[in-house]
Design a protein around this nucleic acid. Structure first.
Length: 442
RNA sequence: GCGGCUAUGGUGAAACGGUUAUCACACUGGUUUGUGGUACCAGUAUUACGGGUUCGAUUCCCGUUAGCCGCCCCA
């Protein structure tokens, strides 16, 4: 009972309050309005374009990511949550989902399904990185994968879907696209790029000097002004594409023009994961020309990964494209652009009770009202009528029904209109009809 | 992994060497035990953690941890 509290001895020992791990977040009810909004839009658009939902395990064999994402990438090298389980297996919390989807495609013989196979997923990913705005160690992605579709029309539609999704969410975005060709042409291009950058070695920033040997493609999107000036005249990856890739990219552009998806060609756009080839794209907020977007600006990113399935042991060459949306980032951007998710529907009825007997009866009557289709709320935990009316007011209920000792005896109930304050006592068996009538009037 | 800034009740803030640590909002309870949205009263903090300087530390110094921001990288 509440009154016992005062008599209790105050605990002398204080336990250290537990906290979430670094970079991990609780998503509280207030925040869920945004999440639910996003999830709903994501589900709707997935269904509208005939994607089937897939849920993969969060924990996978570490090798899956090392082989596909790339051993040298930061994601695998320093950000992976990997550990050895009790059976001595090296496992990892997934840092991304495409590898798992491709694995599932192979495992379940989806190559026997009508191609392309279209799948979507939504769930947590883990990267052991330094937390920052728009970046968490556990974060959530919504993603789409189209496996078994080599034509660039697939790329075009996927980009279209991404744009639609953000439009549906009420966000202004723009799409940047590029093509990074095949592994072979990319290799040739890298050599050329390194040669070019070497000539300007002294002018490059410290990071770029390191990129030169570690991650040369990243030279292209360095944010330092000095490097940007140099890279402006760097060889462009587009010029190194093989005929097929070039053709593929040209077609993609034509498709995009055809369906009027606004895009920006960004010859400096590259991807960090090894499995990408040909088309790569990013969706970034469009806040006007001079807005500084900061570093974690990509709301979604994707690209083609034609070689992945085969590389993983799939039976034949299986072209594929995918897209991943950072849900936290999308929500952050919604707040940034003042997008209000639809508020929770206002309750029709608040059910108040006074006294032990009425409370007992109210429990069942509440069920009746709910079963009649009303959105009804209560605060049975409160005993004073004042407190319950306050609660009703906070919930913004349209009507409050009040059941007290007297009403239980007379088999009646009070219905109070919360806006006018007018109230009426009516026979209990007429309550539902009365409420329906009153509700219909408003 | 590197750099900068910050850390006071549930939230947002004040005090900046000496106060019973102040205020607002929120929350809980109450204002003769049955009436809200507009009143009043009360309650809720070892000032992130650990150490140091000082007669005295929320205030100064160091460390740890966490948060924010930039870099790296990425959704």
């Amino acid at each position: 009972m509440a009154t016992d509290k005062k008599e209790e001895e105050k605990p002398v020992k204080r336990v250290k309050t537990p906290e979430t791990l670094r970079g991990m977040k609780d998503i509280l009810p207030d925040e869920q309005i945004y999440w639910e909004y996003f999830r709903r839009k994501a589900r709707e658009i997935s269904a509208a374009y005939s994607f089937g939902r897939i849920d993969m395990p969060i924990l996978e064999d570490e090798k899956l990511f090392v082989r596909t994402v790339g051993k040298q990438t930061d994601i695998v090298e320093k950000e992976m949550y990997n550990f050895i389980d009790k059976g001595e297996s090296k496992v990892a919390l997934r840092p991304e989902a495409t590898a798992s989807v491709a694995r599932a495609y192979i495992n379940h013989g989806m190559l026997n399904l009508p191609q392309p196979v279209k799948l979507w997923y939504m769930g947590p990913m883990f990267r052991y990185d330094r937390p920052q705005s728009g970046r968490y160690r556990q974060f959530h992605q919504y993603g789409l994968e189209v496996i078994g579709g080599p034509d660039s029309v697939v790329d075009a539609q996927l980009i279209l879907i991404a744009v639609r999704l953000f439009e549906d969410l009420g966000l202004k975005v723009k799409v940047e696209i590029n093509s990074i060709g095949t592994a072979t042409t990319r290799q040739e291009y890298k050599i050329e790029l390194i040669a070019y950058a070497r000539k300007h070695r002294k002018e490059l920033c410290e990071d770029c000097t390191r990129r030169l040997s570690r991650n040369p493609l990243r030279l292209l999107d360095c944010k330092q002004d000095a490097c940007r000036v140099i890279m402006k005249d760097a060889p462009q990856i587009i010029d190194w594409l093989d005929e097929d890739s070039k053709q593929h990219f040209m077609q993609l552009i034509e498709y995009l023009d055809e369906i009027s998806v606004p895009y920006v060609l960004n010859p400096h756009l590259v991807r960090g994961l090894d499995y990408y080839n040909r088309t790569v794209f990013e969706v970034v907020p469009d806040r006007g020309d001079d807005a500084d977007l900061g570093s974690q600006s990509a709301l979604a990113a994707g690209g083609r990964y034609d070689g992945l399935v085969e590389q993983m042991g799939g039976r034949e060459e299986t072209a594929a494209v995918g897209l991943a949306v950072g849900i936290e980032r999308a929500i952050l951007e919604m707040k940034q652009q003042d997008v209000e998710p639809p508020a929770l529907p206002r309750p029709d009825i608040f059910f108040a009770q006074i006294g032990a007997e009425a409370r007992r009866a109210a429990l069942q009557h509440f069920e009746d009202v709910r079963a009649a289709g009303f959105h009804v709320v209560e605060a049975f935990g409160k005993s004073s009528l004042k407190g319950q009316l306050e609660a009703a007011n906070k919930e913004n209920a349209r009507f409050t029904v009040i059941l007290g000792q007297l009403e239980v005896q007379d088999n009646t109930i009070i219905v109070r209109d919360m806006e006018s304050g007018a109230q009426e006592t009516i026979p209990m068996e007429q309550m539902i009809d009365y409420l329906k009538k009153e509700m219909g009037r408003k």
